[in-house]
Simulated scan of single mutants.
Amino acid sequence: MGTIQEKPSVASSSSVGSTVVNEIRQTPILALIIFVPVVILLERFSPEAHTLLFVMSVLAIIPLAALLSRATEAVAAKTGDAVGGLLNATLGNLTELVISLAALQAGQYLLVKASIAGAIVTNTLFMLGGAFLFGGLKYHLQEFNRINARFQACLLFLATIAVLVPSLISQVDQPPALAVSQKLSLGLAIILIVVYALGMLFSLRTHRELFASVSHAEEHEKLWPVKLSIVMLVVVTLLVALVSEIFVGSVQVAAEQLGMTPAFVGFIVVALVGAAAEMTTAFSAARANRLDLSVGVALGSAVQIALFVAPILVLVSYFIGPEPMTLQFWRGAVTMMVVAAMAAALLSNGGRGAWYAGVMALALYAIFAFTLFVLPPATPS
């Protein structure tokens, strides 16, 4: 009997190993995983090589984000819509959250706020525009659920208004004291989290029939086993935290040496790196004529950042930051977020996607990125 019981264990281990190997073969971006041990060793033996550490940590975070995305998808699929939605809200932007927590603890609030604003704009314009472009180059017109897209766009617009309020009152003749701004941001953070929780209840439970897909979906990829997914979530989260600490520690000096500001790094680099895995999903789904999934990933991720990650960072800053963080952004970042939210509403209004719509969204993102690179904010809050 003992030998009979051993065989499933061996087979199970072999199955897990083959699953990981097949995943690496099917997803070339995971080959970058080699940079994880490289950056850890480099930081240990050459901590003064800030630029090299910065580049290596960026390359290391990309495959870790991809692994987190796959593991989260597998766990969420086994837990039902409600719990799965909560898991996606908590873990879907875990890479950005961990990077922001490391920056928060280091007191680099500019990097934190730039990464928040950049993630919202990048997901809304770059990811959505890229999906429209890649899908439109293969299909003349693609359809998606207009109700779902407009719902996400409305949530995103609500979040940008919440960010706009503390930023506006700081521009009056007699700006309020820092304590007032902190208290206002704390209240707004709680409101946003409640709105997001109720939005999940609305879309996943009470009115779930309104959010059904209208795309011609192909078969989903084979999901990982739940045990493997949970182990991967724990291990990869720890690795992301470790690499993020190296990234945050090197970003300031590296940015100066590369001619970039922390605002540009947070707005563009961190946002693109953190969303690399989701972009892969969104673009490949669009090419498979599953534009519903692409739109859901792009706008849903932006909404998670705005209504979940940003408020959580405000709350957590009371415990791990040098001082409480506010939702007061510099004027340029607020403008870009508001314009991105309006663009999302316009792009989702018709329920159809074409390649030139993607070109316009990508052009708007390029305008923002180039402007921020050439004229970074002088005194961001």
Rank of each mutant, 00 (worst) to 15 (best):
321 G>K: 07
268 I>Q: 01
228 L>I: 07
286 A>G: 13
113 K>D: 09
18 S>W: 06
233 L>D: 03
39 V>K: 00
193 I>K: 02
345 A>F: 15
354 A>W: 13
51 T>Y: 07
375 L>P: 00
366 A>R: 11
321 G>C: 08
9 S>R: 14
358 G>H: 06
66 A>R: 08
110 L>Y: 05
329 F>K: 03
276 A>V: 02
22 N>W: 01
242 L>N: 02
143 E>H: 13
321 G>E: 05
201 L>W: 14
21 V>F: 11
270 V>F: 05
58 V>W: 01
2 G>K: 06
162 A>Q: 03
61 I>E: 04
120 I>R: 03
60 A>I: 08
276 A>M: 08
200 M>I: 08
166 P>K: 09
219 E>D: 12
305 I>F: 05
39 V>W: 00
264 F>Q: 00
365 Y>H: 04
159 A>K: 09
318 Y>R: 10
14 S>M: 10
368 F>R: 00
321 G>M: 09
28 P>F: 04
381 S>Y: 13
18 S>Y: 05
313 L>T: 02
292 D>P: 07
182 Q>C: 07
231 V>C: 06
63 P>N: 09
18 S>G: 01
3 T>R: 10
336 M>K: 05
172 V>N: 13
81 D>P: 13
135 G>F: 02
105 Q>F: 12
350 G>W: 14
349 N>K: 11
323 E>Y: 10
42 L>S: 13
251 V>Q: 14
77 A>E: 10
210 L>N: 06
36 V>N: 01
252 Q>Y: 06
132 F>A: 00
371 T>Q: 09
96 E>W: 05
4 I>Q: 08
320 I>H: 06
252 Q>D: 09
135 G>S: 06
271 A>M: 08
125 L>N: 01
314 V>I: 15
219 E>C: 01
234 V>Y: 04
102 A>N: 03
317 S>N: 06
312 I>Y: 05
180 V>I: 15
20 V>E: 10
297 V>W: 04
51 T>H: 06
128 L>K: 00
301 S>D: 02
361 A>M: 08
49 A>W: 13
131 A>H: 13
245 E>I: 03
39 V>A: 02
68 L>V: 08
218 E>H: 12
145 N>P: 10
310 A>N: 12
7 K>Y: 04
237 T>V: 09
185 S>G: 09
196 Y>D: 02
252 Q>V: 11
315 L>G: 03
370 F>L: 15
114 A>W: 11
110 L>E: 15
143 E>G: 12
171 Q>N: 09
209 E>Q: 13
204 L>C: 12
149 A>L: 13
19 T>Q: 14
230 I>P: 01
244 S>A: 14
56 M>W: 00
372 L>Q: 04
183 K>W: 05
257 Q>S: 09
377 P>E: 08
232 M>H: 01
61 I>P: 00
326 T>K: 11
215 S>H: 02
248 V>I: 14
137 L>I: 14
259 G>E: 08
313 L>K: 01
211 F>D: 08
133 L>N: 00
348 S>E: 09
130 G>Q: 08
259 G>F: 10
8 P>K: 04
91 L>H: 04
76 A>S: 15
166 P>F: 06
275 A>S: 15
